[in-house]
Amino acid sequence: GKMTGIVKWFNADKGFGFITPDDGSKDVFVHFSAIQNDGYKSLDEGQKVSFTIESGAKGPAAGNVTSL
């Protein structure tokens, strides 16, 4: 299901970062391709987001990332 969290950091040049889930679980990798907006796909440190957990090739990653 949907989770919420805070963006820990995001490197716009490399197109990835990490989200710290509100439930205290392990930080989740986020790739820019998972960001659900029409414009420039980037996130800001400290931004609140909702997301799902998808299993990627390198382990769990955030999917369906939407800013709240």
Rank of each mutant, 00 (worst) to 15 (best):
F51M: 03
A34N: 08
F32E: 07
Y40W: 15
P21E: 02
G39N: 11
A61V: 13
I35R: 02
V65M: 02
K58W: 15
K26E: 11
D27E: 11
G15H: 04
K2D: 08
D44G: 15
A34S: 12
G56Y: 13
K14P: 02
T66M: 11
N64F: 10
N64K: 06
F16L: 05
D13M: 14
N11H: 10
T4E: 07
N64L: 10
S42V: 14
N37A: 14
Q36N: 12
A12W: 11
N37G: 15
Q47G: 07
G46R: 06
E45P: 15
G5L: 01
K8Q: 05
D23A: 06
K48A: 12
Q47C: 04
F18T: 03
S50F: 09
E54S: 09
A57I: 15
G59S: 08
M3C: 05
A12S: 14
F16Q: 03
G17K: 00
Y40C: 09
F16D: 01
V65P: 01
V7S: 01
F10I: 03
A61P: 02
D13A: 15
K26N: 12
D22T: 09
L68G: 06
A62K: 01
S67Y: 13
D23G: 09
I53T: 06
Y40P: 13
A34D: 07
D22R: 05
F10R: 01
G24C: 06
K8I: 05
H31K: 03
S33A: 08
F51H: 01
K2E: 13
T20Y: 08
D27C: 05
S50D: 05
N11D: 12
G56Q: 12
D27L: 08
K41V: 07
S25H: 07
V28Q: 02
D27S: 07
F29A: 03
H31R: 04
V65I: 05
D38I: 08
V30E: 00
S25A: 11
K41L: 09
F51K: 00
N11A: 10
P60K: 13
T20C: 10
A62W: 01
V28A: 03
V49R: 00
S42L: 12
D27H: 05
E54R: 05
N37Y: 13
D13E: 14
G5K: 00
S67I: 15
K58M: 13
Q47F: 05
Q47W: 08
L43K: 01
D38V: 09
V28S: 02
F10G: 01
A12R: 15
G46K: 05
N64E: 12
I6P: 01
G1F: 09
W9F: 10
F32Y: 14
F10N: 00
D22I: 08
D13Y: 15
Y40E: 13
A12P: 11
G39E: 10
I19N: 00
E54I: 13
F16N: 02
T66L: 10
M3Q: 11
G39P: 10
V28F: 04
Y40I: 12
K58C: 06
T52H: 08
I19W: 00
K8W: 03
T20V: 15
I19G: 00
G15C: 03
S33M: 09
H31E: 03
K26L: 11
D22Y: 09
E54Y: 11
D27N: 09
K8Y: 04
D38T: 12
K41T: 09
T52K: 05
G59K: 07
S33K: 11
S67Q: 13
F51W: 02
H31G: 04
M3I: 13
W9N: 03
A62Y: 01
N64C: 06
F10W: 13
G5A: 02
T52Q: 07
S25V: 07
G63H: 12
V65D: 01
S33Q: 07
T52G: 04
L68E: 10
E54A: 09
G59T: 04
A12Q: 13
G56M: 11
V49P: 00
L68V: 12
S55E: 13
Q36T: 13
K8M: 04
K14D: 04
G39A: 09
I53Q: 05
Q36P: 05
G46D: 04
S67E: 12
A12D: 08
G5T: 00
G17C: 01
G5N: 00
H31T: 04
G1W: 06
K14Y: 09
K58N: 14
K14S: 07
G63C: 06
K14R: 13
T52D: 11
L43W: 05
G17L: 01
F18N: 02
G46Q: 05
G1C: 07
F16V: 06
F18W: 10
I6T: 14
I19D: 00
Q36Y: 07
G46P: 01
S33N: 08
E45I: 14
V30G: 01
V49D: 00
G63I: 12
F29G: 01
E54M: 11
G63K: 09
Y40K: 14
G39H: 07
N11S: 13
Y40V: 11
L43P: 02
T66D: 07
I6L: 09
F29Y: 10
S50A: 12
T66G: 05
A12G: 11
D23N: 12
F16E: 03
T66Y: 08
Q36L: 13
K58L: 14
V7A: 02
K41W: 08
T4P: 03
I53L: 14
K41G: 08
G5C: 01
G17P: 00
K2N: 14
G1N: 10
S55I: 13
D44P: 12
I19M: 02
P60C: 05
S50N: 07
G24R: 08
T20P: 00
Q47R: 07
A62I: 02
A62M: 01
I35T: 03
A57D: 13
G59P: 07
Q47I: 09
K2M: 15
P21D: 02
G5P: 00
P60L: 14
A61L: 13
D22C: 08
V30S: 01
W9T: 03
P60S: 08
T66E: 14
G5S: 00
S55Q: 14
G63Y: 11
K48H: 15
G63A: 15
V49E: 00
S25I: 07
S67G: 11
V7F: 02
W9P: 00
Y40D: 12
V7E: 00
A12C: 07
F10K: 01
A62L: 02
L68S: 09
S50W: 10
H31Y: 06
Q36W: 08
F29N: 02
N11T: 05
S42F: 14
W9K: 04
K14T: 05
G1Y: 09
S67K: 14
I19V: 04
G39Q: 10
E45C: 08
D22N: 11
A62S: 03
S67R: 14
H31F: 11
S25C: 06
K8C: 06
K41Y: 06
V49Y: 02
G15I: 02
Q36H: 10
D38P: 13
N11L: 08
G46L: 05
L43Y: 03
A34M: 07
P21K: 03
N11P: 02
A62F: 01
P60I: 14
N11K: 11
V28C: 04
P21L: 08
E54H: 07
S55W: 12
D13W: 15
S67L: 15
G1H: 06
T4V: 11
G24M: 08
